[in-house]
Design a protein around this nucleic acid. Structure first.
Length: 469
RNA sequence: GCUUCCUUAGCUCAGUCGGUUAGAGCAUCUGACUGUUAAUCAGGGGGUCCUAGGUUCAAGUCCUAGAGGGAGCGCCA
């Protein structure tokens, strides 16, 4: 008999007909007369109740049906006699696909910590929480592709292996086929890569942005959506060594249009979750984060604050003058630390903030320079989106399109751009105003799920000292 | 990388000032129960107190080192 998804079965009202469902047993309880099996197949967070009349099934037959086992259950769909569910299946035929030894199966019906579940990441997708998180993860990916597709963007694939380093966006993982115990060195003591696979030093990408700009300056609007790698020794609930990033890049837009896109895009994703993932969000709202759904609704409906850096510094100083204590100083020119960002987002404005026009020296070389500023107070057109709890969810900027300004900035910073002639060529041939941003997919997931640790919104997290599974 | 906290039964955790045989809930096993909803009720079994040293008449408890994990900070998305 053909399998019906539990999600479909639960919505069906075609009573008194045979139906077959297959899935993993969450629990079995009952007495000598009747046994209740809660079955889940991942199609929805909800379980379907299978009722076994013990007049038809022996205790022996039901013995392998334990928490974690996998079964195929055929029976008659009927309205439920009990409270708690509308429909249930009266079991007529049972097949056990795989047993799960109750003394060894690590998942229990209650009380498992996120830290413990991380140590069994191969089994945690079978829990309610991670089922909900990973279904939401799929929906967020679909929302992202749909948003860009509907707005005329092309999905542009940038390389994962690269010889450039996107201007120090982070420490990089090297890629080599060389035997690391038998490296050749040149006269200066540097590793000789000439006989390595690519004939030069290569690494895993820390950003697809520079290549993304090449796409935007040909196709008009592009976005990337792929894995990104940072070899930083970051031990926080907001960092991964391998994470997914979305990087749209758009020709012919200015700073205001860029901010409009950033805000519109995030709201679209949040609304998508509210529309498509109600059951999972309700579960997370109940067991993980009581304020989740309210917060999602409020972000979907509120205008983000747009705050120039200089104004942000003024607000922070004012707070300090009024007695608010900060651990770190915040003079004009300093990079804001998390406590400053959190003050602005969580205490002062109490809503997402797009911070703009940062001091030139704390931002990347490619950001567009503002005109006519006092010496020592030069700013660039960055547009970072700061969220409560999560911090920087988007890092964006208008890109400097003037060849001369970009060239001078590279020289001023003493950067070696021999690997980036191709990038400068975009400014030499048919340069155009353009802008873009990078959104950390897992940080969006943190916000949308209410989970506390980024390691719990990706199936198999990679962090310092952990590449298990 | 820095700071700090944690590690006791399969899981979640308690364990007082260093003092008798290390406890609870859940899970598991046995029994009871005619429809349960994290079922309930009664009973049984279950321990390398993270590891290695040290202090002490006596260490789960104090000290040192190590391992693993969490949080805060830095770096960033």
């Amino acid at each position: 008999m053909q399998r019906t998804d539990i999600r479909t079965a639960l919505q069906s009202r075609e009573f008194d007909r045979p139906i077959n469902v297959r899935g993993w047993v969450r629990s079995r309880r009952g007495n000598k007369q009747v046994s209740f099996i809660a079955l889940n197949d991942g199609s929805t967070i909800k379980n379907i109740q299978i009722v076994a009349d013990m007049a038809r099934f022996s205790e022996e037959q039901l013995k392998p049906v334990t928490t974690g086992s996998c079964i195929s259950a055929t029976g008659i769909l009927v309205p439920s006699q009990g409270a708690g569910q509308d429909v249930e299946i009266q079991l007529t035929e049972l097949e056990v696909y795989g047993t799960a030894d109750v003394n060894l199966y690590p998942l229990q019906k209650k009380g498992l910590s996120m830290e413990y579940l991380r140590t069994i990441a191969h089994l945690r997708p079978r829990t309610n929480t991670f089922g909900a998180v990973f279904r939401l993860r799929h929906h967020m990916a679909m929302a992202i592709h749909t948003y860009f597709h509907e707005h005329g963007y092309y999905y542009f694939h940038t390389p994962l292996i690269t010889a450039s380093d996107a201007e120090g966006a982070g420490q990089m993982f090297q890629v080599t086929t060389k035997n690391l115990y038998k490296l050749r060195y040149d006269e200066a003591g540097h590793i000789d890569y000439s006989d390595d696979f690519f004939g030069k030093m290569t690494s895993l990408t820390v950003s697809g942005q520079l290549e993304g700009e090449l796409g935007a300056l040909a196709l008009g609007r592009i976005y990337t959506f792929g894995p990104t790698f940072r070899a930083e020794n970051s031990n926080t609930p907001r960092h991964l060594a391998e994470f997914w990033m979305i990087e749209p890049e758009v020709a012919f837009i200015d700073k205001k249009e860029l901010m409009d896109i950033e805000e519109d895009f995030i709201k679209y994703c949040v609304r998508w979750a509210l529309e498509h993932c109600q059951d999972d969000l309700q579960f997370l709202n109940q067991y993980v984060d009581k304020g989740l759904i309210d917060r999602l609704k409020s972000v979907a409906d509120t205008d983000f604050v747009r705050l120039p850096y200089t104004e942000g510094i003024r607000i922070l100083k004012e707070a300090k003058d009024n007695g608010r204590k900060f651990e770190f100083p915040c003079e004009w020119g300093d990079d804001l630390s998390s406590e400053h960002e959190r003050y602005l987002v969580e205490e002062h404005f109490r809503k997402p903030v797009i911070m703009t026009d940062y001091p030139r020296d704390i931002k990347a070389f490619y950001m567009k320079q503002n005109e006519g500023e006092e010496k020592g107070r030069e700013t660039v057109q960055g547009t970072d989106v700061l969220f409560p709890q999560i911090g920087e969810i988007i890092g964006g900027s208008v890109r400097e399109e003037s060849y001369n300004k970009l060239d001078r900035e590279i020289e001023r910073r003493g950067m070696d751009m021999s690997n980036y002639q191709w990038y400068l060529d975009t400014r030499r041939f048919g340069s155009a105003p353009h802008a873009g941003f990078g959104l950390g997919f897992e940080r969006l997931m943190l916000f949308v799920t209410g989970m506390q640790n980024i390691r719990d919104v990706i199936p198999f997290p990679r962090t310092p000292k952990n590449a298990e599974f």
